[in-house]
Design a protein around this nucleic acid. Structure first.
Lengths: 193, 193
DNA sequence: TCGTTCACTGTACGTTTGTTCTATAATCTG
DNA sequence: CAGATTATAGAACAAACGTACAGTGAACGA
């Protein structure tokens, strides 16, 4: 999972994996049948981890009763629980970019959870109601995922890893400020003069 | 560029590229020296296109005088000018995910332009001032780039390509609503009970 | 204790890879 | 038109690739 996440599946050879694990290439094939079989196993492991983590987070956090600090949205909370060094959070990037069935399942689950969370917040009067709820949920979700996808680039321009503890604090503060008060002032410039 | 964007650099062979172009593999090597040389040439081409487009967009749009509809931020405007079917916008995804010098230059340029745009909006009273301007600029930027990075996944859950014309309209409406009025209501839940 | 399973290795095979070499047509230059 | 340069192809090569095969040693149930 680590090697796949770092270099991409096709850029890592079975020999690389075997050498990194300190075993022979034959053993990898023996256990997983083929490289594609290994990839599937890695996908399954990542998906299982993430979905169970998501179920915990969504169930405990949606009704506002749990004890974790309020993140901007779900993906942040999940990433927070994984920890910045986790191979899983690095593999999510590959998963989402390379596409495939596992990525679709994951994204759909995250989307559904975000829709549910948003509906809950609206019901409790914690969020403004909006016209286009699916689009709003998708917007919140991809904003969160962007931290994972562009982690290295963000680290480079801000000087702090947004998935580390201080980085997360700084990021969350900014995000909550925008999500609470907005950025643009109400008076739009004339669209049709 | 198209093949690299679709499958990733290491998953495309020189023979694939040559066959797609209707020439021999030898010719590709003859012109670019090596596969890595071709990759560099593709990077250069993408970077040149994007940076010049960015210069146009930032220069014309920052002072509010140009005629294009207000996008949420810079990347949207750039993507809008490229068109949804452009190979360049697809290659940006690979560029940002695979990393490397070209990606760093591009992201830094986009970040700087976003910072400048935000400062301009603040100066003209169109944006609230914030405490952490770099973080805010990074947040706006990666939110925009997320559309490109997660385009396929967004299309799947919303039923419309966010880089197409109708998809862009729907997305922009949602984004502007959030950026203008926020989502969360002002009264935060108690953080330290 | 014996036969069976299991984790594991070394070797080898066929394929694909990036690249080189040689050769030929086309195009430009003087 | 002669000569040089360029565009292009085909064959071939060494390396790396995924994987199959045969075999070895340890663990384990009967």
């Amino acid at each position: 999972m680590r090697l796949f996440a770092e270099r991409g599946v096709s850029a890592v050879s079975v020999r690389d994996i075997a050498a990194d694990a300190g075993v022979s290439p034959s053993l990898v094939i023996h256990h997983y049948g083929s490289k594609e079989g290994l990839r599937t196993a890695v996908d399954d492991r990542a998906l299982t981890t993430l979905l169970s983590l998501l179920a915990d987070t969504a169930g405990g956090g949606a009704d506002g009763g749990s004890g974790y600090a309020p993140s901007a949205s779900l993906a942040s909370a999940v990433a927070e629980r994984l920890g910045a060094g986790s191979e899983v959070s690095a593999y999510v990037r590959r998963l989402l970019v390379d596409g495939g069935p596992a990525a679709e399942v994951l994204f759909r689950a995250l989307f559904d959870a975000t829709v549910a969370l948003l509906a809950d917040l609206e019901a409790n009067g914690l969020a403004r109601s909006g016209d286009d709820r699916p689009a709003r949920a998708a917007f919140l979700l991809v904003n969160d995922l962007a931290i994972i996808l562009l982690r290295d680039q963000i680290t480079r321009v801000l000087g702090v890893d947004p998935l580390s503890e201080p980085g997360m604090a700084r990021w969350t503060e900014t995000v909550l400020d925008v999500y609470t008060s907005g950025i643009f002032v109400g008076a739009d410039p004339p669209e049709a003069p």
